[in-house]
Amino acid sequence: KPRVVLAPEEKEALKRAYQQKPYPSPKTIEDLATQLNLKTSTVINWFHNYRSRIRR
């Protein structure tokens, strides 16, 4: 699969959402995906990867 490249404003929106709730509910994930015009799997993976990046 080709890698999804996020626009800077999409990254900022995801980071703001992460600061509010690092483990978002499925509803929140769905809303974010719709709002940013991304797949839910992309949003889920971003949160998973961002949490692991923060832990390093």
Rank of each mutant, 00 (worst) to 15 (best):
N49H: 01
P2S: 15
P26Y: 12
E10R: 01
I29C: 14
E30S: 13
V43Q: 00
L38Q: 10
A17S: 06
E30M: 12
A7I: 06
S52L: 12
V43N: 03
N45L: 01
N37G: 07
I29G: 07
R55H: 12
T40E: 11
L6I: 04
S41P: 03
P22S: 07
K39Q: 07
T28M: 14
S41L: 02
R51C: 10
P2G: 13
H48E: 15
L6R: 03
N45R: 06
L36K: 01
R51T: 12
P26S: 11
Y23E: 05
K15F: 09
Q19Y: 03
I54K: 05
A13D: 03
A13L: 14
P22M: 12
L32Q: 02
L38P: 02
K21S: 15
V5T: 10
S52V: 08
P26T: 14
Y18W: 10
A33Q: 01
Q35T: 03
V4Y: 02
H48P: 01
R53P: 04
Y23K: 10
P22D: 07
T40Y: 08
W46G: 00
A13F: 02
Q20L: 09
H48K: 14
R56Y: 01
E10M: 15
L6D: 02
R16I: 13
K27C: 00
I54L: 08
P24F: 14
V43C: 01
P24M: 15
D31K: 13
Q35K: 13
E12K: 05
P22R: 06
I54T: 03
E12R: 03
T40I: 14
W46N: 00
R56N: 09
L38A: 10
P24G: 03
Y50S: 02
T34A: 12
V4N: 04
L32I: 01
R51S: 07
K1R: 00
W46V: 00
Y50M: 14
R16W: 00
Q19N: 05
E12Q: 12
R16S: 10
P22E: 09
I29N: 00
S25N: 04
Y50G: 01
E12L: 05
E9M: 12
K11R: 10
T28E: 15
R56C: 15
T42C: 10
R3C: 04
K27P: 04
E30P: 06
T42V: 11
I29L: 09
A17P: 08
K11T: 11
K39R: 09
T40N: 05
R55T: 08
T42W: 06
T34K: 13
L36N: 02
I29A: 01
A13E: 12
K15E: 14
L6Q: 07
Q19V: 07
R3F: 14
T28F: 06
Q20F: 06
P8V: 03
V5Y: 14
R55K: 15
A33T: 08
R51F: 14
R3V: 10
E10P: 02
L36I: 05
Q20C: 08
P24Q: 01
R16C: 01
S25T: 07
V4I: 10
V43M: 06
T34C: 09
T34Q: 06
P22C: 11
K39S: 13
K1C: 04
P2M: 14
Q20Y: 08
L14W: 00
P8C: 01
L14D: 02
L36V: 10
N37T: 08
Q19W: 11
Y23S: 11
A13V: 14
T34G: 09
D31Y: 14
P2H: 14
L32T: 06
S52D: 04
Q20S: 10
R3L: 08
E12W: 03
N45D: 09
H48N: 15
E30W: 14
K15A: 03
K21H: 01
T42Q: 13
K1M: 00
T28S: 10
K21I: 08
D31E: 08
E10G: 02
T42S: 08
R53H: 07
V5S: 11
Y18D: 11
